[in-house]
Design a protein around this nucleic acid. Structure first.
Lengths: 238, 238
DNA sequence: ACCTGAACACCGTTCAAGT
DNA sequence: ACCTGAACACCGTTCAAGT
């Protein structure tokens, strides 16, 4: 082993200390390069130049690594989406939404593993909820009722956001009216559009033991919209 | 241990021998009950009442189990789709396709793990290809050009079929014109509609080094169709 | 405080051995 | 021919020990 002098200690970058941030960036790099299945704790440790067990001082476990991955990707999506030049939604909601969606898609194309990870854990992320809140605001500015904005989210589904069909599956704890109301109040300030939309949906369906969304109804609404659009293309083409 | 008599041997069902079919049915049962992540070779063996290593006499490895799972689910989808009462596509292609898609959806709702498995391996399955071929036939009967039928498959994407956005990503071996032609000839008899559609797509894009489908183009086509449909709903509602 | 090695309970899979 | 136990190379994770 090469002996260290004091001089070394002063000049040499004294090996950046491990951190959650550094672990997550390495995880993204590894997933991008070798795929999600190659992302093991042992290989991740190797990637940051440390023993596997050291990771556990910065992330609780492997699940937390996936959560971090989601955080990173959603952050990139938000950055891309905010940078994009888009028309004002008051004048051209279609152009505004289109630009946002295409920008989000570009990020996902850079991280092919992302949809698989987002699908299972995006919907609880504040960043993701903020993104959806923003889309609802955009649709409202474009003249959508809350109800149609709600439908629109389902139709766009995984396509729009790159993932996750089931946005608001309330878990059991939140499916009681009281809990839902409490949650909504808490979120109202941060996500006014989303909360408005949910309040509207609850209002329309007061015996909402089914939860906010009737999946079958939403599926058929989206399907019919698509079939109708195709029929229009067909008659236009012939 | 209870001694066996010859009488036992005659009356007793002598423990059904293990078979690929029995292994796969157990795999479906296990995935339905405990989720896909609980499907391990060791637990699967336990489910059929055997040691883990015995499975390998009936399936090559775990990957082959997943392939079998896809086979089973696609079989159920085909059965459901064939049973469904639907209008004739010549008279009402929308109704015909709608009925098929909703029938397929019902199967997928019974197997919540299915989309995740289908996404990665459905597109190479003959059953799946036959399903797509049938949809193309239906669209053609409804008056679609091959080109629009092709677009329609992309728009419906995972929604229609319950999964898989990328239907025809040709691997490198098939991306040469010669190989593609050979494959198409081989498939022409079995899947005439699909092959007709692909031939048409190749014809339109003779310098097809990009492969059959331009993902970005298809994505934007679908997105615009959806945005337009939403705009129509919006103006209708106000 | 941060990092580590040994260890544990799990994987998928191979192989030689049993019937 | 079909089934099995021991073994191997991998996992995620715990824990006691190092600095």
């Amino acid at each position: 082993m090469i002996p260290r002098t004091d001089a070394d200690e002063l000049t040499e970058q004294p090996r950046i200390p491990l951190s959650r941030r550094r672990v997550l960036r390495a995880a993204v790099r590894l997933a991008d390069r070798d795929g999600l299945d190659s992302l093991t704790m042992r290989r991740l440790a190797q990637e940051v130049g440390v023993e596997a067990m050291s990771l556990y001082h910065h992330v609780a476990n492997k699940d937390a690594v996936f959560d971090g991955l989601v955080e990173v990707v959603l952050g990139e999506i938000m950055a891309a989406v905010e940078e994009v030049e888009a028309p004002s939604p008051d004048e051209d909601w279609q152009g505004a939404l289109r630009a946002r969606i295409l920008a989000a898609r570009e990020v996902l194309l850079r991280h092919r593993w992302a949809p698989r990870v987002l699908e299972t854990r995006a919907s609880t992320s504040p960043i993701f909820i903020a993104h959806v809140d923003h889309i609802v605001a955009l649709l409202r500015a474009g003249g959508f009722s809350y109800e149609l904005a709600h439908r629109a989210l389902h139709v766009l589904g995984s396509r729009a956001l790159g993932f996750t069909q089931e946005l608001f599956q309330p878990d059991d704890a939140q499916s009681t009216d009281a809990a839902a109301a409490a949650m909504m109040e808490q979120m109202a300030e941060q996500f006014p559009n989303l909360v408005g939309m949910l309040a509207d949906a609850v209002h329309d369906d007061p015996d909402g033991t089914l939860g906010f969304c009737d999946d079958q109804f939403e599926f058929e609404f989206a399907l019919d919209l698509i079939l109708e659009g195709l029929e229009r293309r067909r008659t236009a083409g012939s």
